[in-house]
């Protein structure tokens, strides 16, 4: 019996496709997310918008929060560890979380190295801004890639930028000759064998999800139309005035992302979305997407 292989890890990511993964900080929120139709929840101590507001060092959630959420819902429970903090990851694995997000939303523990994710049985998801970053993380063992976007901003612009960039980079690889791929790998700083694979298949070897700034059903559908296979919603739900209704609307918008009439219908009657931030108003050093490489 083969447990924890790359195929088994990617297998769970495949099951999450076409769904919505929601950030939650309490068992009550987790229940709201599950009842709304979330495919998984991300157990956090603070949602990104609050991390941004309150500052300080953001670390892995305490085991109590994670355990309480695990015993409340039946859907997969994910949790975040700091970039490079492999001991937080070991603890999360011991807690049997279903997926670990090595996330730029938390304060990085290592400014040079990410976690060697092949050492773990639990699958990892990592953020990226372009294809090179995605392939470096896959080289380290990530079973799922998401755009970084700009977490806690309620602004979709960065997620769009990152998703378009990844798609454009993939397309470009497929137009190159074999003798041009090594130079492309060098330029992207990505593992050559994976670069070759992407050039040949025209897609990432793992699922590609969107995160960072989704606040409305329309945002979720936009990311799906741009090629995301599932959507993470962080602050967008529980920073809004109507979490349960909004969560359900975003779930429907993700399934019916290319049906404008349905999108109009699910968007009806929602209260105010989270206020959100203009990216230009976030000082360069406070931009979460810049963390990790």
């Amino acid at each position: 019996m083969d447990k924890g292989s790359f195929e088994v890890k990617v297998g769970l990511a495949e099951m999450l496709k076409g769904g919505v993964i929601m950030d939650v900080t309490t068992p009550e929120q987790a229940k709201i997310a599950e009842d709304a139709g979330a495919v998984a929840v991300m157990a956090l101590e603070r949602i990104p918008a609050d991390i941004r507001e309150h500052g300080g060092i953001a670390r892995m959630s305490g085991p109590n929060v994670i355990k309480a959420i695990q015993s409340t819902v039946s859907i997969p429970v994910m949790a975040k560890c700091r970039i490079g903090h492999f001991v937080e990851a070991q603890i999360l694995e011991a807690l049997k979380v279903d997926f670990i997000d090595e996330s730029e939303v938390l304060t990085p523990a290592d400014e040079e190295n990410h976690i060697w994710k092949h050492d773990f049985k639990v699958p990892f998801v990592c953020g990226c801004r372009d294809l090179g970053e995605a392939l470096r993380r896959i080289g380290e063992g990530a079973a799922l890639i998401r755009t970084k976007g700009e977490a806690g901003s309620g602004n979709i612009v960065e997620a769009v930028r990152h998703m378009r960039r990844v798609q454009k980079d993939i397309h470009r690889l497929t137009t190159l000759r074999d003798d041009e791929l090594m130079a492309a790998a060098k330029e992207m700083g990505a593992p050559f064998e994976i670069v070759r694979q992407v050039a040949k298949t025209g897609k990432l070897p793992v699922p590609n999800f969107a995160a960072g700034g989704v606040a409305t059903p329309a945002d979720a559908a936009l990311m799906m139309q741009l090629g995301a296979e599932t959507v993470f919603v962080g602050s967008g739900i529980f920073k809004s005035e109507d979490p349960a209704d909004r969560a359900k609307a975003i779930v429907l918008a993700t399934t019916y992302y290319n049906d404008p009439e349905k999108l109009a219908e699910v968007s009806m009657g929602l209260k105010d979305a989270m206020k959100g931030l203009d990216i230009a108003s976030i000082p360069e050093e406070e931009r979460l997407a810049k963390r990790g490489w």
Binding site: M1, D2, K3, G4, V8, G11, P76, K96, D98, P123
Partner: peptide, 14 residues
């Protein structure tokens, strides 16, 4: 019986 083998770390190929 849902998730009868346990959480994701217990997922397998056989």
């Amino acid at each position: 019986q849902r998730n009868a083998y346990g959480r994701q770390v217990e997922s397998f190929i056989a």
